[in-house]
Simulated scan of single mutants.
Amino acid sequence: MSDTIRTGGCQCGAIRFRLEGEPFDSSVCHCRMCQKAFGAYYAPLVATGEAKLTWTRGELKYFQSSNHVRRGFCGDCGTPMTYEAADGIAISAGSFDDPALLPPVVQFGVEGKLPFVDRLSELPARHTMDDIDTAPFLADIVSYQHPDHDTEIWPPENGPPENQPPENKR
């Protein structure tokens, strides 16, 4: 097993995990079941393979989506976290602290692939702040999302993250 360690968690920070070793692969699944589970056009997943998965904070809630598959999610914020079947566990790629390190290498369920997905990169692209005129609330938006790294405690005991002393902003 490699010395590679990757961490991640849900949007609110109630669930955190650690993956030690190299995952089997990273993929996207276009099947209708994955589309609904993620509320998206496809599900990006990282198959853990022989890597050691440890849940370091919280406990998943589960939905049995078929006779062979259950899906884990955060019961507090709803973040999809796992796809679990007889062949192993896959973790939602976006829940890793650095998902850019796990680009997909294969597509599954292509019979359910929506016809426009391959053309998404052709759409006009805008940065978030490009919409400041039509969405002025963006100017002072504060994220309460868990940061992309492990923290000793979450949520912070004395309010939103911006009110935390430097030692709690890890």
Rank of each mutant, 00 (worst) to 15 (best):
167 E>Q: 10
54 T>S: 14
26 S>P: 03
46 V>R: 01
146 H>K: 09
126 R>F: 15
66 S>L: 08
111 E>C: 01
155 P>C: 14
113 K>V: 00
107 Q>V: 12
143 S>I: 02
126 R>Q: 14
138 L>P: 01
11 Q>D: 12
160 P>G: 09
82 T>K: 02
70 R>S: 02
78 G>Q: 12
43 A>D: 00
133 D>K: 13
166 P>G: 14
34 C>E: 03
9 G>S: 11
125 A>C: 07
127 H>K: 13
64 Q>C: 12
51 A>N: 04
21 G>C: 09
116 F>I: 10
49 G>C: 13
137 F>M: 15
1 M>V: 11
151 T>Q: 10
133 D>P: 01
145 Q>M: 11
147 P>F: 09
25 D>Q: 14
6 R>M: 05
43 A>Y: 00
117 V>K: 14
154 W>E: 04
103 P>F: 10
153 I>Y: 05
25 D>F: 12
114 L>C: 07
61 K>S: 10
71 R>N: 04
72 G>N: 08
5 I>F: 12
90 A>W: 01
6 R>H: 03
136 P>C: 11
30 H>Y: 08
88 G>D: 03
80 P>C: 08
50 E>W: 13
102 L>P: 00
104 P>I: 02
33 M>Y: 01
78 G>S: 12
4 T>R: 01
121 S>L: 06
155 P>W: 06
134 T>M: 09
153 I>F: 05
110 V>F: 00
135 A>D: 12
152 E>Y: 05
100 A>Y: 00
140 D>T: 04
92 S>K: 02
141 I>Q: 12
79 T>S: 13
14 A>F: 13
83 Y>L: 02
101 L>A: 11
139 A>R: 15
146 H>T: 06
16 R>G: 06
153 I>M: 06
150 D>T: 13
106 V>T: 10
59 E>S: 15
3 D>Q: 07
42 Y>F: 15
104 P>H: 08
95 S>D: 08
159 G>R: 03
19 L>F: 13
29 C>K: 10
38 F>K: 01
160 P>R: 07
22 E>F: 02
154 W>G: 02
146 H>A: 15
129 M>E: 07
16 R>T: 07
170 R>H: 12
1 M>S: 12
120 L>R: 14
38 F>V: 04
107 Q>S: 15
155 P>N: 11
131 D>N: 13
121 S>A: 15
129 M>G: 04
73 F>A: 00
2 S>H: 08
99 P>S: 12
55 W>P: 01
7 T>A: 03
72 G>A: 08
110 V>R: 14
155 P>G: 07
77 C>Y: 09
169 K>Y: 11
75 G>A: 15
83 Y>M: 02
48 T>F: 06
130 D>F: 02
143 S>N: 10
134 T>R: 07
83 Y>Q: 00
76 D>Y: 04
45 L>H: 01
122 E>N: 04
35 Q>C: 15
115 P>V: 08
135 A>N: 05
93 A>P: 00
110 V>K: 09
20 E>Q: 15
25 D>M: 06
123 L>H: 05
92 S>C: 13
58 G>C: 12
24 F>G: 04
87 D>C: 05
100 A>D: 00
